[in-house]
Design a protein around this nucleic acid. Structure first.
Length: 233
DNA sequence: AATTACTCCAACCGCTATTAC
DNA sequence: AGTAATAGCGGTTGGAGTAAT
């Protein structure tokens, strides 16, 4: 392995190291981190380089505080999936799994415990999900009551209410949201047709998905109307 | 002003999954 | 098919900064 006999650096990264890693990652691509570590001359492990890039250096990362909207999403998805930080992070553009994990430990775990000392209490905050209609001009607000099951599909007909809403500015596929999404997923910028609208049944359920996502990541219920989530500023 | 307690977050570690050969 | 290398994930730790005493 690399650096036989040499000592690998650990701990905080210096600005110069960041610059060098950025240059090499940009040049060589975000793969083969051991090679990047060697070629860059950084006395770091490939793993350390990858971690630094993913959590701090890569473009399109949001910096700054988690917004209230993002917090709600984290609470909702954590209740649904548990400590699946990477999976949750995929629903929060610009946020890393590490960031969400830290935020949960620092803020939300305590908060949710205080609120009821159980996950069901989190669910009982009655999450409201928005489902866009087929005509893109309206949606159904899906308010869940007694949401104790981790499985959406177990919610019976009497467990939720549907309210119809007009959507003056919620047309995802023709809005600034689209611009932000394409910023975030460069691949989609090149070929928008690759983006998939996953619909089912009566057309109320939909999901704007990256084709690279697997089926479990495509969950119509967790795409909501919170446009500010896509605000990278 | 000094010390202690606490919070937050970057970074590391160990393990598993995936990919390449 | 088997093995090694690499990538990904989640848990944990250490240290810097801040608040409380």
């Amino acid at each position: 392995m690399a650096y036989q006999g040499d000592k690998l650096r650990k701990g905080s990264w210096l600005e110069e190291e960041d610059e060098r890693l950025t240059a090499f990652a940009t040049l060589l691509g975000e793969r083969k981190w051991d090679s990047i570590a060697i070629l860059s001359g950084l006395m770091r492990s490939g793993k350390s380089c990858r971690m630094r890039w993913l959590n701090y250096l890569q473009p399109n990362l949001k910096r700054g505080h988690i917004s209230a909207e993002e917090e709600q999403i984290v609470i909702q998805l954590h209740g649904q999936w548990g400590n699946k930080w990477a999976r949750i992070a995929r629903r929060l553009p610009g946020r890393t799994d590490n960031e969400i994990k830290n935020y949960w430990r620092a803020h939300l775990r305590k908060k949710t415990r205080e609120e009821g000392n159980s996950q069901s209490k989190v669910y009982s905050s009655k999450p409201e999900l928005l489902y866009q209609n087929g005509d893109s001009t309206s949606a159904w607000k899906y308010s869940i009551r007694d949401y104790n099951s981790a499985d959406d599909h177990n919610i019976g007909p009497t467990d939720f209410s549907l309210e119809h809403y007009e959507l003056p500015s919620m047309t995802y596929l023709n809005s600034s949201y689209e611009t932000r999404l394409y910023d975030w997923i460069p691949r989609l910028s090149n070929d928008q047709s690759q983006a998939e609208i996953h619909g089912e049944g009566n057309g109320l359920d939909w999901c704007f998905c990256d084709p690279a996502w697997n089926s479990e990541d495509c969950d119509p219920g967790t795409v909501d109307s919170l446009g500010s989530l896509w605000d990278m500023n």
